[in-house]
Amino acid sequence: MKRLILLLVSLPLLSSCSDQWGWYVVDPTTKTGLTNLKFLLSGLEQTVLMSFTAIAISMVVGLAVALPGMSSSKGWRRFNRVYVEVVRAVPILVLILWVYYGLPQLMGISIGVFGAGVLALALSDSAFQAEIFRAGIQSVNRGQYEAARTLSLNYVDTMRFVILPQAIKRILPALGNQFVYMLKMSSLVSVIGMQELTRKANELVVTEYRPLEIYTILVLEYLVLILAVSGVFRWFESRMQSDER
């Protein structure tokens, strides 16, 4: 955190010793600067809303894809493999374009920029979430399943009360990682016109011709957002660590 503040302070200082920088464009003490800054920050809500919705959906879908992967039935396991391999192979940007431009043509419906963004991000992320969940669930000792079975717990109860609570604790660092990754990938949705952080910056660059300063602000916006998310995950981890065996 200290280093971040140092960075924030040092950037305007840099500008005074080099004529490459023109911080006036986002100087909050001037009227245009303040307007520009507000404009850049106005994308935050969309970035957060879209990423968080997509991640929430992808975790549910990921778990639903992970569970058949550990089934004793070959058909279910194959479904898991095919889903993960196919979805994982498509670049997120390609998926965004396909969902936004292709899907409406295929299905005859229009889902809008936000819907397309969330769907593409969630779809792409779900394959990775599925692998994370599978690894976590498989790391739980066999004896836990056997104990649950000798108590006659059914599959759903075994997962819900015995296996998942232990698995989630172990995969929390990986989930945090994936969360951060998705926050960053949400910037790609700017290509279809989603009014999120990156799109706002692009639009401002076009009118102000100061890419260096504006994209630097954009970098800082993501940095702050992601540090906040990392912080929350670390807090969760340390809380859960306290009742580790």
């Binding site: 836990q144 056997e146 104990a147 009360f161």
Partner: peptide, 27 residues
């Protein structure tokens, strides 16, 4: 049929009471 294992196989994230009540409550 109940079973007791060599490695206990208690549920490590649940208290003793929760270990004991899980089966009776759910099953």
């Amino acid at each position: 049929i109940g079973m007791v294992f060599q490695q206990f196989n208690l549920f490590p994230h649940l208290t003793v009471m929760q270990n004991l009540t899980l089966g009776p409550m759910r099953v």
